[in-house]
């Protein structure tokens, strides 16, 4: 009996110490480690379409599950899927991500004031002073900042038009 008690006490001491040490050295910091990873994935254009002031706060919100993984329109479906996989979220429960938008400049109204291309976070507008500006579709994230900056109201947002290079077969009706 005495030996048994001793053995158990000893084990308790040793294991308890071990656990205490482990708790100290393997402690996880409270900051969500995913925030940084998510921020790296986001476009970084600080466009604010997600409703947060920039990509950093958005990443924090997504990591803490305060924002949906579909909240970033420039990232589109690809980003939403990557994030969903990272966060282990079933994407089908969240509904569709917003269709990416593109800015279009009305050629007849543009005065060439350069305000839009100065504010564009991805340098997606090219042009020069007093000359018509043009949006480079490949770089536009649809952040609407140019729309707000334009004094002539000549910028509108559209979705990208379907053409032969982008078209593909739709999913067949389920059997």
């Amino acid at each position: 009996m005495l030996i048994a008690t001793l053995v158990l006490t000893l084990m308790g001491l040793v294991l308890g110490t071990l656990l205490a040490l482990a708790a100290r050295y393997m402690a996880v910091e409270d900051d969500n480690p995913m925030t940084g990873e998510i921020e790296d994935l986001l476009p970084g254009s600080q466009c604010g379409q997600c409703g947060f002031p920039g990509c950093g706060p958005a990443a924090e919100a997504i990591a803490n599950r305060e924002a949906d993984v579909t909240c970033c329109p420039p990232g589109g479906r690809a980003l939403a899927e990557t994030l969903a996989k990272m966060m282990d979220i079933d994407l089908s429960t969240l509904g569709d991500a917003a269709e990416p938008q593109l800015a279009v400049i009305d050629e007849t109204l543009c005065t060439g004031c350069t305000r839009c291309f100065k504010i564009c976070p991805t340098d997606a507008i090219v042009g020069a002073s007093k000359q018509m500006h043009v949006v480079v579709n490949e770089a536009c994230t649809g952040c609407e900042q140019c729309m707000e900056a334009c004094p002539e109201d000549c910028i509108s947002m559209t979705t990208e038009e379907m053409d032969l290079t982008r078209w593909h077969w739709h999913k067949p009706e389920a059997a």
Binding site: G12, L15, G16, L19, A20, A22, A23
Partner: peptide, 8 residues
């Protein structure tokens, strides 16, 4: 109970 040994 101290949190370190709570499970045992």
């Amino acid at each position: 109970i101290s949190p370190q040994v709570r499970i045992p």
